[in-house]
């Protein structure tokens, strides 16, 4: 569409629509940020903004009483999500290469399996995993969460990556093979550089998914050894047992949203292409 042709009025309408979208997307985030700057009694002021902006809630979770709880949860969340992402991207890269590129029976089986795993209700496998983990000592450990996280991240990694890989000009690989390179060499020297952006995007999307987990987090952990942030939010407490930890929860929510926002700001174009790749262009 040639924007030069647009009348002033139409342009204005586009701006209005655009701003509506932005408000839609950011309003709840703004609200939780505002909430995190309220004092305990200000929380009940029923207004959007705090009367006084204070850092108390951040003090509480970062250097105050709740720091053990929050910081260890943050460490767990970051560590577990990164490791799960790494493993699933590595496994998925190999699998997607094979699917996009090689002829072998069972290709369809793998894709169907990935589909089935992706639609799997997490809650259905939590109990058996809990029992198994207890018996083999994985309960409340990092691997105890990393392994189930693979069930969330692996399928999407396989699809996104196969979609990316299908767009790669494979003639180059064939050319390399004609020049005497083995399949493996052709893969490493020609395809890897072409595939890296796709792999990177897949990693970001996987990370979001692992970062988002709640059910595994509350069911398969019980101490600060492995409890991730979403699960830890239920452990905050107010000044006493019966007071609401609203402020601490809001502050923690903001802190865990920051990395997500940074990733989005830096890589929005890639994430969008990653998310939309497979759907139609397949």
């Amino acid at each position: 569409m040639d924007e030069g042709q647009l009348s002033r009025g139409t342009k204005a309408w586009w701006w209005v629509a655009g701003i509506a979208v932005i408000v839609y997307a950011l309003f709840p985030v703004a609200w939780i940020v505002s909430l995190s700057f309220k004092t305990p009694s200000d929380l009940a002021n029923l207004q959007f903004l705090p009367t006084n902006w204070v850092w108390d809630n951040y003090d509480n979770i970062l250097v105050g009483d709740a720091q053990n709880l929050f910081l260890s949860a943050l460490r767990n969340s970051v560590g577990i999500s990164l490791i799960a992402t790494f493993i699933s991207v590595v496994l998925a890269t190999f699998a997607a290469y094979a699917i996009a590129r090689l002829d072998f029976p069972g290709k369809r089986l793998i894709l169907t399996t990935a589909l089935a795993v992706a639609i799997f209700p997490v809650i259905s496998i939590v109990t058996p995993l809990f029992n198994l983990w207890r018996n083999i000592g994985l309960y409340d450990t990092w691997p105890g969460l990393i392994i189930p996280y693979l069930s969330l991240t692996l399928p999407i990694s396989i699809w996104t990556l196969s979609a990316f890989f299908r767009q790669i000009p494979w003639e180059l690989e064939q050319a390399a093979q004609v020049d005497g390179a083995t399949t493996w060499q052709a893969f490493r020297k020609v395809i890897v550089p072409l595939a890296t952006p796709g792999v990177f995007t897949t990693a970001i999307i996987s990370f979001f998914i692992a970062w988002n987990d709640f059910v595994y987090g509350i069911s398969l952990t019980s101490t600060e050894a492995a409890r991730p942030v979403p699960a830890a939010l239920a452990f905050f407490t107010g000044a006493s047992q019966f007071e609401e930890p609203t402020g601490a929860i809001a502050a923690a929510a903001v802190v865990v949203t920051i990395p997500v926002v940074i990733l989005v700001l830096l890589f929005q174009r890639r994430i969008v292409s990653g998310l939309t790749q497979g759907a139609v262009k397949g």
Binding site: L111, A114, L115, L152, P155, I209, G278, G282
Partner: peptide, 10 residues
Amino acid sequence: STTQAAAGEV
């Protein structure tokens, strides 16, 4: 949102 591409893929 783990699932966009699957059906097309299959």
